[in-house]
Write a protein that binds this DNA or RNA. Structure first.
Lengths: 232, 232
DNA sequence: AAATACAATATTGTTGACAATATTGACAAC
DNA sequence: GTTGTCAATATTGTCAACAATATTGTATTT
């Protein structure tokens, strides 16, 4: 099963290509699998197995484990091994608490720095079409709209540090979030909350937008608490 | 100069001792040196040199570099090397923006979860004695008080995720923060702001405490902007 | 002297092997 | 059947050597 590692050839487009080490590729791919729950929370990660699959040495795998651990995606126990982080209820609550403030920051900065047109365009995304889709349980449409909202906000906010922190949190809670929208009524509530936030943003009312975003996160947290036995 | 690495002996107190790998020790010590500016921003970190100093192999050093990079303390350029991160003015502004919200979160949660006695005790720390010390440019006393304020708040807030994010930010801005208190008038302003925040906390007024903390951070940022040519 | 070519050196990237530790499974004692 | 040993196996921790890439120094040309 072991394939010979080919010598590294010069890239076809050396002027464009950005160097990416084996470790970087490992981090990227393992992150993807963990975030998507392709590898389940609590699952054991064996250095040997991963090294063989990606055809690299265990040293690379260990390096990748180090950064995944730092990101909170895996936990390592010395001399025992690495496990995909399993979020307990209290840790999820913590993440909701922190998110409430970081999302508030995102919405405030975006409101202050964005143009009215930006939010009008986003308001069209959160229009009656999406309302109908959500009413018909089209979660893909809803999730896509949410993603666009967040992507636009974080781009307009122009704060790489904030972006990094929020991305890291999204990575950790993505699995739970996807289940949360399944709870009857949650998606529709979220839809209306986002629409209200966008109206405040369009009107340039940063205080109100920030306040509404915080309420939105607190509400999401309340739904999580109510249905947590189904969500964990 | 090369000393033989001794075989690892069983710990004297195996029941107490928590396993700490070479990599962990490297991360801890390098972090300390970078945060304290014992290693200057922009300085080159050579794997060989560090490996020799700590008497470990380069593999360990590389692993440590991975997590330091993830924490934003160093930057690595593929095939070139690692540099201690040098914060540019715009990145510092970003960190101030994010901090404004995370510190607000800390103060709110602490207010909601702490007891009146806790804040009364802290108010004693921020009493007239400290005011006099600050007036006499006793920065050690001021910094110690600030540290106690933060330590108490973050402990009372009971949110490990928030603690981790704030610790990471403190690590990155500590050098600049220490210079900022040198600016004439800044320490005294900070002193009064902290006292006002603590009064709100003692009164259980989380809204006001949060608001004051945000103003405190915005003010600190304004001072930074005004004196940045001296601070960078 | 300035610019260039290129060998010599230094530094980072990667691997396979060995050491230390943990887990498993077979066997015996109770 | 349960429990306790202990050797066999599996897994993590570490290192030293080699490969790939970058930097430096020097001779050479202009």
């Amino acid at each position: 099963m072991k394939s010979k590692k080919p010598l590294k050839l010069a890239s076809v487009r050396p002027e464009i290509r950005e160097a990416e080490s084996d470790t970087d590729r490992l981090v990227t791919e393992l992150r993807r699998r963990i975030v998507s729950h392709e590898i389940a929370p609590g699952a054991r990660l064996r250095e040997n197995q991963i090294a063989e699959e990606f055809d690299v040495s265990r040293g690379r795998v260990r390096e990748a484990f180090g950064v995944l651990e730092e990101r909170g995606l895996i936990e390592r126990i010395p001399n025992k091994g690495a496990l995909v982080t399993r979020l307990e209820a209290d840790r999820i609550e913590e993440l909701f608490e922190v998110r409430e403030f970081l999302e508030a920051a995102m919405v405030r900065l975006a409101t202050e720095r964005g143009t009215r047109e930006t939010w009008e365009r986003l308001l069209n995304v959160f229009g009656d079409d999406l309302a109908e889709a959500v009413a018909g349980n089209d979660f893909d449409a809803y999730m896509a709209a949410i993603r666009e909202f967040r992507g636009t906000c974080i781009a307009v906010a122009e704060n790489e540090t904030l972006k990094g922190l929020l991305d890291s949190i999204y990575d950790r809670v993505q699995g739970m979030t996807r289940r949360l929208v399944l709870v009857p009524g949650r998606a529709m509530a979220g839809f209306h909350q986002h629409r209200d936030i966008l109206i405040a943003m369009r009107d340039g009312d940063a205080d109100r937008a920030e306040q509404l975003r915080r309420e939105n996160l607190r509400d999401a947290r309340a739904w999580f608490q109510k249905y947590q036995s189904y969500l964990l």
